[in-house]
Amino acid sequence: MKTVLVIGGGVTGLKASSELAEMGYNVTLVEKEDYLGGQVAKHKYYKLAPDLRLAGEVIDPVIKAVENNSNIKVYKHSHVAAVSGNAPEFKAKIKNSKGESEENFGAIVVATGFEHFDPTVKQEYGYGRFKDVVTNAEVEEMLNPGGPTNGELKRPSDGETPKKIAIFQCVGSRDRQVGNPYCCRVGCVVSTKQAIEIKEKYPDSEVYVYYMDMRMFGRGWEELYGKAMEEYEIIFTRGRGAEVTLKNQQLSLRAEETIMDRPIQHSVDMIILAAGMAAGEGTIEAANVLGIKQNDYGFLEPKDDFVSPNESSKPGIFIAGADKGPMDIENCIVEGAAVAAKVASSLKN
């Protein structure tokens, strides 16, 4: 039986590994961090949209399915340094602090995922300059009882609970200025979910969402958006957050209320940037090591988006999940299972 190399221990890589192992294949899973779970674990995602169920309910079983399967060998804190050979005879060099080993594989699955867009480059938003301008990932950590603030939303500047909160959509997405003209696909629903969580926890707070379009295409997303407006009185303003300044020690934002056709200034206590998805360092590194094609934005390019969505530009190397482009957790799990099936059928031939 051939061994499959899976690169990346996030949701997609975990699901692919456990599915392959259940089919009887040996799997070697390589993860660069010293924990499994990818971005979900890294940023301590608390609740998932649209059901507001705990992220742990979803990610823990996926991790356990890998850890409890003896067909899977997990290398944490490791990376794939070099790959040689062709399908179905690959040789991969796996490196970590203890040294390096070379192993043979029949197929390779790349599930290196995404990274949250770093909003520092959007200088006009003041991220990194103003302490109370935070990212949506930082808010996830704060809202998680196991996080740095024990589940409380606190202003980084003074530890106070903010009363007026603005959320900026599309930070680093739909933006040619930063080279990411694509939609991040999750910002809308994550912002709406976070706004509801904040209103649930702090009913006296005011939450404003600055958006261009609300792209609520997923299961139950549109309903969540309706609930946010009707039940939680979250205020959605159509206009992109344009600039953040500090006025009398308070954050002041500029936007245009494009429905009312007027430019506005708005003083708030905290601004949450719904930072989008960018191709992660791991994805770029994997593309270089394996010599597989990337698109204009650094994501991996399938051999054919419609016909062979999980095959890379090279035979025997498969791709899945958010390393192909922005993707939510639900779809990453589907992708993990899909790539496992594709690998299994290719190894049979």
Partner: peptide
């Protein structure tokens, strides 16, 4: 290159703040 109607230009525009003008 097309327009998203996001209003960033108007929000940043000094002329829009004081006069009857809108880059959008």
């Amino acid at each position: 290159h097309g327009c998203l109607n996001c209003g960033t230009c108007v929000a940043n525009c000094p002329a829009a703040a004081f006069y009857d003008y809108s880059p959008r």
